[in-house]
């Protein structure tokens, strides 16, 4: 007797399960879950806080906000950031002042932890949304974030 009831139970639970999958088979629209990346590249928008890479925004006059205080370099757990700094003459006061020469960012080592951005006193660096970082040669992942001939924005002090 239990032989037949087993068969009955087996078929019943199978059909119960298939009612779930069958419902989705009939009702779900195309593209309900998956996105057609990379075809949707033009419309793809990442969330504002998405951590893609560290960038340093510059304004129209090619000025950034980094004073070269090196706090981000110390906060970084794995030596991703290297600040090569120099002393320059401040135009207004005429005194010698620290300034960055190169803000070197090794993207290949970055764990996207966000500690550098969190610690920066002048908000000089922020998150960029680009995530397509594959390259043929890993040296291309070492970047200098401050643009050539860029200067410190006026009025930014640490």
């Amino acid at each position: 007797m239990s032989y037949f009831s087993d068969i009955y139970k087996g078929i019943k639970t199978l059909l119960t399960g298939m009612s779930v999958t069958g419902k989705y088979f009939i009702t779900s629209k195309k593209g309900a879950i998956t996105q057609q990346y990379p075809d949707n590249r033009d419309t793809l928008k990442m969330f504002d806080r998405f951590r893609g890479e560290v960038i340093m925004p510059h304004n129209e006059e090619n000025e950034h906000r980094c004073t070269g205080c090196q706090k981000c370099e110390i906060a970084c757990p794995n030596g991703t950031i290297e600040i090569i700094w120099d002393r320059g003459i401040d135009e207004e006061t005429g005194k010698k002042k620290k300034k960055i020469d190169q803000f070197v960012y090794h993207l290949s080592m970055c764990t996207m932890c966000g500690l550098c951005i969190d610690v920066c006193p002048t908000d000089a660096i922020e998150w960029g949304q680009n995530f397509e970082n594959s390259v043929y040669d890993r040296t291309a992942l070492t970047r200098v974030l401050n643009k050539p001939d860029s200067k410190l924005m006026k009025g930014v002090e640490d």
Binding site: D48, R49, F50, M112, G114, D118, W127
Partner: peptide, 23 residues
């Protein structure tokens, strides 16, 4: 991703609270 910035390795907590307020 919207609140913490990452999907898997969030690192959203810091000693003392949260890195950012909720979205």
């Amino acid at each position: 991703e919207e609140t913490c910035g990452a999907r898997l390795t969030m690192n959203y907590n810091v000693p003392g609270g949260l890195m950012l307020d909720i979205h």
